[in-house]
């Protein structure tokens, strides 16, 4: 692997984002650190309400105005973008970092032809019209749309869900961004189309050498596309590491529970190991301790007192008090 691929394009360090709820600070994201190198795909996994999308929006400078970044940095190619002014953000958004949303129908303008919408992201960033048109058609072709010329002249409602998602992807790639954030890009699509979109993203990731942050709650998809995985629960990263390692040796009980709750043919006749309860609401989170405590099968008193430290190494890390006494992972996966 070339050395330049090792330096992370996007590096989030100790990021915390808080809201004021009833006079109290409520953390939607707390101490999140994450890094993606060029040409890599990294998954951010968790249930709804865990702060995955909030993390992505903060990377785009699109966090809700009622929130405040409490601490942390986001480095894009080594430069902290959290301190950017709105004008500087406009230069970054869509050019350096692009995002694909879950529901392409609500992300596209229903009154503008899709070809125009794809071109727009190029023109906004200074591409001339001829060039933009050429690039748009080229990208529509690359995303596997049949007869791109004809489809570019359609309105979003005339296209199918899969086609719309391809349009979204083309428009996100107009300026060959360094980072592509895909927020549940396949959740609203059929299985057959889902696979096609995933294969497309994998392919583009390889050919365009982007760093991709892939947000999903589906661990099955992660296995197919992502190099590294970060498991998020109630605003914090609870486990991270190489996708294969995390899937084959899940250490955090939340990760294990997520894997166990996936239905499959060979689990027939046995009740699924569901995680009882739900993710705590933003206003109801404890200040200290592990948020998974109420749902955890192995909870202990210490879990309510402090958030666990990181155990393990770079390839696989876990934040859980279970490993307090036995730091048994040192070197195990190396």
């Amino acid at each position: 692997m070339a050395a330049e691929y090792e330096t992370p394009v996007l590096e989030i360090q100790n990021l915390s984002l808080c809201f004021k709820i009833a006079g109290r600070r409520a953390y939607a994201i707390q101490n999140v650190s994450l890094s993606i190198s060029r040409g890599k795909t990294v998954a951010l996994v968790g249930e709804s309400g865990c702060g995955k999308t909030m993390t992505a929006l903060t990377c785009m400078g699109l966090e809700p105005p009622s929130s405040a970044v409490a601490c942390g940095t986001i480095l894009l190619n080594g430069k902290n973008i959290l301190s950017c002014t709105e004008k500087e953000w406009q230069e970054i958004r869509g050019k350096k970092i692009s995002m694909i949303f879950q529901e392409p129908m609500s992300a596209l303008n229903p009154l503008v032809k899709v070809g125009q919408q794809v071109m727009e992201s190029g023109i906004v960033h200074g591409m001339d019209k001829k060039m933009a048109e050429h690039r748009a058609l080229d990208l529509l072709d690359k995303t596997g749309l049949p007869s791109p010329k004809r489809l570019a002249d359609c309105y979003p409602h005339q296209l199918s869900g899969g086609q719309r998602q391809r349009i979204m992807i083309a428009s996100a790639l107009m300026n060959s961004p360094d980072v592509l954030i895909a927020d549940e890009p396949t959740t609203s699509l059929d299985v057959t189309i889902q696979t096609q979109i995933i294969d497309l993203l994998k392919d583009l990731n390889r050919t365009m050498h982007m760093a991709v942050l892939f947000i999903t709650h589906d661990l099955g998809i992660v296995k197919r596309i992502c190099d590294d995985i970060y498991i998020m629960y109630a605003g914090r990263i609870v486990e991270s590491g190489d996708t294969g390692l995390v899937n084959s040796h899940p250490e955090h009980l939340y990760t294990r529970a997520l894997i166990d709750s996936i239905p499959a043919a060979d689990k027939r006749g046995h009740p699924l190991k569901a995680i009882e309860g739900t993710v705590p609401m933003l206003g109801n989170r404890a200040d200290d301790g592990c948020e998974f405590y109420p749902r955890c099968p192995c909870r202990r008193d210490i879990c309510t007192l402090s958030f666990p430290e990181q155990y393990g190494f770079k390839d696989h890390a876990v934040w859980c008090h279970l490993y307090d006494d036995q730091n048994r992972h040192s070197g195990e996966h190396d």
Binding site: E47, S48, H217, D218, L219, A257, L258, D260, S261, I262, P263, P271, L272, K273, A274, I275, E276, T278
Partner: peptide
């Protein structure tokens, strides 16, 4: 529904 909730509901329907 989310995977974890999905499992709860599938178990409930079966019960």
């Amino acid at each position: 529904l989310d995977v974890s909730i999905q499992a709860q509901i599938l178990n409930l329907l079966q019960k």
